[in-house]
Design a binder for these strands. Structure first.
Lengths: 337, 337
DNA sequence: TGGATAAATGATAGCGCTATCATTTGCGGG
DNA sequence: CCCGCAAATGATAGCGCTATCATTTATCCA
């Protein structure tokens, strides 16, 4: 239908190069380059002439060529398990907010919690020669770790604090988060503890901390409901059917916690008064805004995902910064437990 | 602390080039290039030798150089208002799912609903010579449109269906969505309608449709509560304070709808029985999972963000595909209205 | 007014690959 | 046993920029 609006024919109007601008302005190519990158060192007369030519031709610098010549890509590779999870989306937002004003682009890749895919994505990212890599978690495989090490660029692991990161890490102690929740449940007199979450390393660390706290409090071994990639509703159903007798649940993220609370309501196991002591205590992780809006309001381990992203960007850009930053977490107790 | 784990010293072990691999394997550079890109046309003997050298050196192809030489970057530029909004995160997820298996990388940029920033980000994206641009919405400024047109690459606008897209568009009719909700409210006997949302074009189209339906039903002009960048809770508070007498609200997204319902609950204007006819009917847009878990369950205009992303990726890669795809929407009535 | 210094501009080479064509090698049939 | 063709490999050039040095032009004071 709209022929006249299709992208312009590449033969009719080839994308102009720096050379074309130079010819039009009657200067050498390098001068055009300078006008684009360091306008301050060009006399205003020629600068105006060049800027005019740039405008007339609609010149957009070719950063691919520029990157090759200068060995600077002004890009950062970002690897997340999935972006369709507001918890990581906040982190990507946070790091973008730091990187974009500095002229860095974000190359985004998703591993889908899949080890092979993670390695493939890391290789794909590295082939674009980013100036740094920021990822959620530490590389899962030895090959991935080795690739990153060889790349010779800053690598920031987030949402986790490995003893020995490849290069740098910013996040919190997942094990400790689990322990804090377990201890809280024990103090509140809860007896039959359950953990719902994925099987990735961060979730597993939380699980271990949770178990440790239960053990120290003399409670029976908590149970673990493993779910992969499931929705909040799926998590809720899974807990209710596989561990119906529980009285306290630590959910690996707030979406699961809300799903569980919703399932409890449907099963009529939620007190009509949200302020009452709940039959089943539920604590999530992440502190989604939704958790504050839900009824009962959701207790949670608060993590500032955006702050993690911002800090990660700063570590990525400045190798002089401390290489291990613990941003901590906070147990926020609300109505749900 | 962990000196030995810092990225390897660039002087000690320079990142190996294709040339280095060629020398090690005793072949010409172009043969290495072929082993990487078209292993089928290399004899298995030399291929094995080259692959061995690649492994030994830990060679990762430099796609920046490759892109410059081949004029193919295998990348797609993606521009969203913000990624920290699950509605768009789903779209990014969807398009990534199509693009990544094909070897394309996603370069992500955020406009923050800011016109100037949108143009800056478009320029930044185009300077990396992506093979296509996928964006939420149509370019806001004439300059942005012109840049995109000149780039001579596929451009897919999403979440919106302009009459005359720069190149292609996939989404739904926002105006119609507003009309459907307005009509629904009118039929349900609601009289004082309110719209909450941002001031961007898509929200405005919904608003216009909403007004049109109200007018046709003989209702008083709906009121519009403009909020920029606010949280769900902020949206809820804004509606309650500025239009306390409303009996039906169309929220521009489910997060706002949930925020409003939560505020209504706090103001004691929510019937304890979620199945009862609500004092204030609320309809959102997007169909977040949270909306199904909330009590009352949230009525909404269902949009499949991931499907939009997938379709956009397909249009971006295949210029032969139809250039205007209406994925539609559905009014899902639940407890909230 | 000359000469030293700074400011402005340019010439040259090369970043690490791939497109394109040229050459060599392998191989079956006349 | 050599020709012709396909398969395999290589030589050359260049993608569009920027780093680096060289050169020219303006500037200022002795």
């Amino acid at each position: 239908m709209n022929m006249e609006n299709r992208p312009s024919d590449p033969l009719k109007s080839p994308v102009p190069t720096l050379m074309a601008v130079a010819r039009m302005a009657g200067v050498s190519p390098i001068t055009v380059s300078r006008v684009v990158r360091r306008p301050d060192i060009v006399s205003s007369a020629t600068r105006l002439r060049v800027e005019d030519a740039i405008r007339k031709l609609g010149y957009v610098p070719n950063m691919v060529a520029g990157s090759l010549a200068s060995a600077r890509t002004k890009s950062v590779g970002v690897l997340v398990p999935t972006i369709a999870n507001s918890i990581f989306a906040d982190t990507v937002q946070g790091l973008s907010d730091v990187l974009e004003p500095l002229g860095f682009s974000v190359i985004l890749a998703q591993s889908g919690y899949d080890d092979r895919r993670e390695d493939r994505m890391l290789a794909a990212l590295l082939s674009r020669r980013p100036e740094a890599i920021i990822m959620v978690g530490a590389p899962v495989t030895a090959e991935g770790t080795e690739m990153l090490r060889r790349a010779g660029i800053p690598v920031v692991e987030t949402w986790e604090l490995p003893e020995v990161p490849v290069d740098a890490a910013v996040g919190f102690d997942n094990h400790d988060a689990g322990r804090v929740v377990g201890r809280h449940f024990a103090k509140a007199g809860r007896r039959r503890l359950v953990f719902v979450g994925g099987g990735d390393r961060r979730a597993t660390q939380r699980w271990h901390g949770f178990v440790e706290a239960a053990r120290q409090a003399g409670l029976a071994e908590p149970r673990r409901v493993l779910i992969e990639w499931q929705s909040g509703a799926g998590a809720g159903a899974a807990v209710l059917t596989s561990t119906p007798d529980t009285d306290a649940v630590f959910a690996a993220n707030d979406a699961y916690a809300i799903g569980l609370l919703s399932a409890l309501r449907r099963a009529n196991r939620l007190d009509p008064d949200p302020a009452a002591v709940p039959q089943v205590a539920v604590v999530g992780l992440g502190d989604l805004e939704m958790g504050r809006l839900f009824s009962p309001t959701v207790s949670t381990i608060r993590i500032d995902g955006a702050a993690i992203g911002r800090a990660a960007a700063e570590l990525a850009l400045d190798p002089a910064k401390p290489r291990r930053v613990d941003l901590g977490f906070a147990l926020i107790l609300r109505e749900s437990g």
